[in-house]
Every structure is written in structure tokens, then in C-alpha cells.
């Protein structure tokens, strides 16, 4: 069993952190093989950012797939770029606050989550990635939520004051993801 995820969006949306936290949680909690591969470019700010996570029971080949099982898309440009690479039967998690486009593919599951709006509701636009991570984990159950939360805590490190905000963000995301899972 191998799961192949691509996370894509604007620079500044916490794309890399989302992928890295998930991969770290997989590393810490299981004996599975896991890779995190950030795509890197020459620009230091702005532009698109994307990263790849592979979690597998056997040795991983490339740390990014030719086709993806799952993609998380945070902006329109990333949707256009990565949608064709989702395998039939794959899953798309989309930031519906920004991406209003018709998806136009009937062969994949689409989970919509207005994570930018939710983040603003929580009072900090930056936590949209943590909400989306919750959505993804809640829907896929790829790793137990408390393990993922530990990884978030580790990432925050000494910024203890941010813990309540992030906990709430993660909780909201999880609830959304779990609800979408029920609705399947």
C-alpha cells in the first residue's frame, strides 16, 4: 500500500509545513517508509509552492509520483497544474475559499473546504494549512489525528502561545474532513 500526495498553492500558505508535518507524523508513528520532497525554485518569495509526500509499506521509488493518489490544492493556478495528474479514483482536497472553479473530473473524489475563510474566522489567516491538514487527516485517516497533532506541536516548538489557535484550527479541519467522510 502506497499513498502519494501532492500539496500545492501560493508561497506563504504554509504548503511545505503541511507536507512536512504529515510526513514527520508518519515517520514518528509507524514503521512505514515515508518521503517528503519539496519542489524548489529560484524565487525566494511568492510564486507557486508545492511538495510531495509518499507513505508506503514498501521501499519508495521516486519521492513524487507520475500520477498522484491525492492532491491538496490551495489556489487556482495549482489546480490547473496538478489536476491532470490525479489518478482516476484519486482524491482532491481543495481550498474552496479561493478555488471556485468547476473541477470537471467525474473520476475523482472532491473534498471542498473553505480553509481561508475558516482561518480568518479563527483570527489568523496563517493557520489555513493546519485546517487543511485536519481536513486531509480526518477524511483519509492516513495517520491517527493525535499523532499528527504531536507533530504540529513539535513544529511549533517554543511558540507555545500559538498552541490553542493551532489546536482549534486542527480540530475544525478534522471535523470537516470527518463529516465529508461520513457523507461519502
Amino acid at each position: 500500500m502506497e499513498t502519494n500526495l501532492c500539496v500545492a498553492g501560493f508561497g506563504g500558505q504554509g504548503i511545505m509545513a503541511l507536507g512536512k508535518i504529515l510526513a514527520e507524523a508518519a515517520c514518528d508513528s509507524t514503521d512505514k517508509k515515508v518521503t517528503f520532497f519539496p519542489s524548489y525554485g529560484a524565487e525566494q518569495r511568492g510564486g507557486t509552492a508545492n511538495c510531495y509526500v509518499v507513505i508506503s509499506d514498501e521501499e519508495i521509488g521516486a519521492p513524487l509520483g507520475d500520477v498522484m493518489d491525492d492532491i491538496i490544492v490551495m489556489n487556482g493556478a495549482s489546480l490547473a497544474k496538478f489536476l491532470p495528474r490525479v489518478r482516476p479514483g484519486g482524491r482532491l482536497f481543495v481550498n474552496s475559499s479561493i478555488v471556485k472553479d468547476e473541477i470537471g473530473r467525474g473520476d475523482i473524489t472532491v473534498v471542498r473546504a473553505p480553509v481561508t475563510e475558516l482561518a480568518l474566522e479563527l483570527g489568523n489567516a496563517k493557520v489555513l494549512n493546519v485546517i487543511m491538514l485536519g481536513v486531509y487527516v480526518g477524511y483519509t485517516r492516513i495517520i491517527a489525528p493525535d499523532i499528527v497533532w504531536n507533530a504540529i506541536e513539535q513544529t511549533l516548538g517554543s511558540k507555545v502561545s500559538l498552541l490553542p489557535l493551532n489546536r482549534e484550527a486542527f480540530r475544525r479541519g478534522l471535523a470537516l474532513g470527518e463529516a465529508a467522510r461520513e457523507d461519502r
Partner: peptide, 10 residues
């Protein structure tokens, strides 16, 4: 190479 150098693994 740039993959082995930049990717994360256990």
C-alpha cells in the same frame, strides 16, 4: 543529487 539532498526521509 538534488533529490537525495533536498528530500526528507527517516
Amino acid at each position: 543529487d538534488g533529490v537525495v539532498g533536498t528530500m526528507m526521509e527517516p
